[in-house]
């Protein structure tokens, strides 16, 4: 939801220091900031009840992702409706009729900075300044709705859209900025429904496991046991991890309580490293000096799901094939000088 634009205390203060209420340099032809911000949020369907977006639940069944274009006329009508509040006579109507083109133009710009406002990165005046630098008219807006247990289980999922193809496994910081499409909105509508809006038509969309706090995990081998992939000292898994040579079975304490025998696992890693070092050219596993080496071995880099246009059935822009990949994560062991 929209963050409060001002607090009661701030409003009172503004009123006290500026009793005429309007700063002299603010050109009155523009919309008041609160109103502009409200309408720009509305343009991106923020606050619109979910039933209006998806009128039949079968349009977005469980465990599904649906891509869409945004019907700009629909959003314009939302704004028209909002502006009709307090429209009691022909005077207001004439005013709206006269101002509507400018208002629409301004909102086309301001809607691009709504996400900045939602994240609280900037206050409205500076965000608006950013938005007004791009005077282009409103462009195509597309987006996706994802209803999945992945949304509730992995809050703050990372969603990125690209206007061109990007090689698999690449680090987001290495993708050229011109390919990255600006994200207008990324929000959870309910615990398990996520909406994202992009500016333009993407060729590729990523959904990535959240990065906050790199986690540690083991993988199931499908036979009731667990393994960790063999990694080198920079955390890079020696692919493919489905080859047994690149798997390290995880020892557990007896008793079936799923307690990892940590000390034994460390011994196994050391032994594996010695085994590999007999082959020339085989990379080294992280040195098991202590906790850091162990931590690298059980790192769990985030999964990344790619949705990509493929030769497909839909004539529209975003038709999608999907693939999962596991990007790399660079780590290094350091020790402090003592």
């Amino acid at each position: 939801m929209r963050a409060a634009w001002t607090t009661g205390a701030e409003a009172l203060r503004a009123r006290m220091v500026n009793p005429v209420q309007l700063a002299a340099p603010s050109p009155e032809a523009e919309m008041p900031p609160y109103m502009e911000s409200f309408l720009a949020h509305l343009r991106l369907l923020i606050g619109v009840p979910f039933d209006y977006l998806v009128a039949d639940s079968r349009l977005l069944p469980d465990e599904s992702i649906r891509f869409f274009y945004l019907d700009r006329s629909w959003c314009d009508r939302l704004v028209d409706g909002a502006l009709s509040v307090g429209k009691i006579g022909t005077r207001e109507q004439a005013h709206h009729q006269a101002h509507a083109p400018q208002a629409q133009q301004q909102l086309d710009r301001t809607e691009r900075v709504v996400r900045i406002l939602q994240r609280g990165l900037q206050d409205f005046p500076s965000a608006k300044q950013t938005g007004d630098q791009n005077p282009d008219a409103g462009q195509i807006v597309t987006g996706l709705l994802l209803r999945s247990a992945a949304v509730s289980g992995w809050p703050q999922m990372d969603v990125r859209a690209f206007s061109g193809d990007v090689p698999a496994g690449i680090d987001p910081s290495q993708v050229s900025n011109s390919l990255v499409m600006s994200l207008l909105r990324l929000e959870r509508l309910s615990p398990s429904v996520l909406i994202a809006l992009f500016q333009g038509v993407p060729k590729l969309v990523w959904c990535e496991e959240p990065h906050h706090g790199v986690q540690f995990a083991v993988q199931e081998n499908g036979r009731g046991g667990f393994f960790i992939p063999v990694r080198d000292a920079s955390g890079k898994a020696l692919l493919p991890s489905n080859a047994p040579a690149n798997q390290l079975p995880v020892p557990f304490r007896t008793g079936g309580r799923r307690v990892i025998a940590v000390a034994q696992l460390r011994k196994d890693i050391i032994k594996k490293d010695q085994d590999l070092s007999t082959h020339t050219g085989a990379p080294h596993l992280p040195a098991q000096t202590g906790a850091a080496g162990y931590a690298i071995s059980v790192l769990s880099p985030p999964w990344r799901q790619r949705f990509q246009k493929a030769a497909g059935t839909f004539s529209g822009g975003i038709n999608i094939a999907s693939a999962v990949e596991r990007p790399q994560l660079a780590v290094a062991i350091k020790s402090l000088l003592k």
Partner: peptide, 14 residues
Amino acid sequence: TFRQLMQQVNIGMI
């Protein structure tokens, strides 16, 4: 897992 879930997701235009 995230991977399993995302692989099972039903994909399409709305």
